[in-house]
């Protein structure tokens, strides 16, 4: 099965949607790359916004309209904000930090590039002849609402329970951390060398 014979739509004559998808995809990919390589931690979060937003556009291009808005709402609106809060709460340095990458970088690069090469090879080999017909929109809000509350209502409810559990868990974890932190602060001033202080004097200084 040759490329030309099997594929009625060639790669050399892209449609407008394809061009848009490619361009936005490039931007998304570049933003993701910056996210995982930048030395500035807050910038990483901001570049993540770009990448996630780019993905939302891709969803729109794939006619999954509702998903796109959910993506923007939840990811860009809440998750990234949560991450930023996390960065602030852990006193992440603002500005360039030279050690944002660990010593595992080269191993990670090797694994990632190898994985990418393998997966791209497999995916291209498998799907190079397949064509997505985008004539009828597939993910309008009406369609999504109908299928979600007709066919997927039970998992949906289960998911709400999961979210509740996560909420409770997060609260419990934070409360415990508070209690422990208070106890440790009391004990730490007494001069006792608790195991948690094994992180070293530099960190203690940073805590102060």
């Amino acid at each position: 099965m040759t490329l030309a014979a099997a594929a009625p739509y060639g790669f050399l004559s892209p449609t407008g949607v394809e061009v848009s998808f490619l361009l936005v995809g490039l931007v998304t990919f570049a933003a993701a790359l910056v996210t995982v390589t930048t030395k500035q931690l807050v910038h990483a979060a901001l570049w993540l916004v770009v990448a996630l937003g780019g993905l939302a556009v891709e969803y729109l291009l794939l006619t999954a309209e509702f998903i796109a808005w959910v993506q923007v709402l939840i990811y860009v609106g809440s998750v990234v904000v949560l991450l930023l809060f996390g960065l602030m709460l852990t006193k992440a340095p603002i500005g360039r930090s030279p050690d944002a990458d660990s010593g595992n970088r080269w191993a990670a690069l090797t694994v990632a590039v190898a994985a990418a090469a393998t997966l791209v090879w497999v995916v291209v080999d498998a799907f190079r002849t397949q064509w997505i017909d985008l004539d009828a929109p597939q993910g309008t809000t009406a369609v999504t609402g109908a299928m979600l509350f007709q066919h997927w209502v039970l998992p949906f409810e289960a998911l709400s329970v999961l979210l509740l559990a996560a909420l409770v868990g997060a609260i419990v974890l934070s409360r415990k951390a508070d209690a422990k932190a208070d106890a440790k602060a009391d004990a730490g001033t007494g001069g006792a060398e608790s195991p948690a202080d094994a992180a070293g004097p530099a960190d203690k200084e940073r805590q102060r």
Partner: peptide, 14 residues
């Protein structure tokens, strides 16, 4: 649209 585009983009992002 070719299926390969989103698939490859997904691979790269992953």
């Amino acid at each position: 649209m070719h299926l390969a585009y989103p698939a490859v983009l997904a691979v790269l992002l992953f």
